[in-house]
């Protein structure tokens, strides 16, 4: 091969995002370049630990990564508007929103230092907890829940729960031993972090939150490719792959949900998702706090939010 692209990501080699998404991308790029590009995938954060993966690509410790943007708080605040409650409704929808925002140039200010290939999100996160099901906001009072993002931490706090920050691999042991009562995760996460083994009840709130992922490449490495190989990479970037990624995550979500159904767990689905009148108040507050904060810093957060909501209606529907 003329070029080796080292792509590091955070999932184990047996997980869906590796086998169904990134390995497929690898094969496609290798085939379309007639083997002139060799993609080497490093799963499980073996080349750089998840929180350091974006910088590792920027500094060319690896050439490309698939990683979570939220690990670096306030570094990609406009992109993370997609994560706000009430924006997306599933992974295909969320992926399309964030990719379209980027394609429209709304997020350019945040990605000057690498060459993004495509973006995606996971499906709507919900609550997975031990004991009684969470039917209404009051049920969260007194529970200790692992928080995925600052915005969800804000919602949990308003509802009287204690948001707990802890490393993701610790959440299984912590829930097993009772240090936390539950977690906020999408079904896919509940399955792959094995929390479906521990949880007894699950609460689905469509649109509650999501995480944004990016597949991105080192700028220098991309720029130094000959035109025909650049074309191969370009051909495997953008909305088409965002959409594929979304499909993979939606499929994993339904597998994760099926696991809980088969195990006979209680599954509560909140009617109307984030629009449900009983749940709406804290959710609107948290969203407003986030957007106000960015506006105050002089960022066009409301504008991006409005665009995202408009895209949500047309995306993947």
């Amino acid at each position: 091969a003329d070029v080796t692209i080292r792509l590091g990501h955070l999932w184990p080699a047996v997980a869906g995002p590796h086998t169904k998404l990134l390995s497929v991308w690898e094969e496609k790029v290798e085939a379309e370049s007639n083997g002139r590009i060799d993609v080497e995938i490093y799963p499980s954060g073996t080349l750089a630990a998840p929180p350091a993966q974006y910088d590792a690509v920027k500094n060319r410790i690896m050439d490309a990564t698939a990683t979570v943007l939220g690990y670096s708080a306030n570094r990609f605040p406009l992109t993370q508007v997609v994560e706000l409650p009430g924006v997306q409704s599933n992974a295909v929808n969320g992926s399309c929103i964030v990719q379209s925002l980027y394609d429209n140039g709304a997020l350019d200010s945040e990605f000057g230092d690498t060459h993004p290939l495509f973006f995606f999100t996971h499906g709507s996160g919900g609550f997975h907890n031990k004991g009684e099901a969470i039917m209404q906001p009051a049920d969260l009072k007194g529970l200790r829940m692992r928080r995925p993002t600052t915005v969800v931490a804000n919602i949990l706090e308003q509802l009287g729960a204690q948001p707990v920050g802890m490393a993701a691999p610790e959440s299984y042991t912590s829930m097993q031993r009772g240090v936390i009562d539950g977690v906020a995760l999408p079904w896919e996460g509940a399955m792959s972090f094995r929390l479906n083994e521990l949880a007894e009840s699950h609460t689905e709130i469509e649109g509650l939150y999501t995480l944004t992922f990016i597949v991105t490449m080192n700028k220098q490495v991309y720029d130094s490719l000959p035109a025909d190989l650049k074309a191969v990479i370009d051909n495997n970037s953008g909305l088409e792959w965002a959409n594929k990624a979304g499909e993979v995550f939606d499929e994993l979500d339904s597998l994760g949900r099926q696991q809980a159904v088969d195990a006979g767990h209680t599954i509560v689905t909140i009617e109307g998702g984030t629009e449900n009148p009983v749940w709406k108040a804290p959710i609107v507050n948290a969203r407003k706090a986030y957007l106000d904060d960015l506006q105050e810093k002089g960022l066009p957060a409301r504008d991006v939010y409005d665009q995202a909501v408009a895209l949500a209606a047309s995306c993947g529907m």
């Binding site: 009072k141 007194g142 200790r144 931490a153 009287g160 729960a161 204690q162 707990v164 920050g165 490393a167």
Partner: peptide, 21 residues
């Protein structure tokens, strides 16, 4: 603080954010 929080079902909330970091 979180043990107290758990034992009192959230009534006594002396918990503070950010211990992890």
């Amino acid at each position: 603080t979180r043990t107290l929080f758990g034992m009192t079902k959230g009534e006594v909330d002396l918990t503070f954010p950010g211990s992890f970091e």
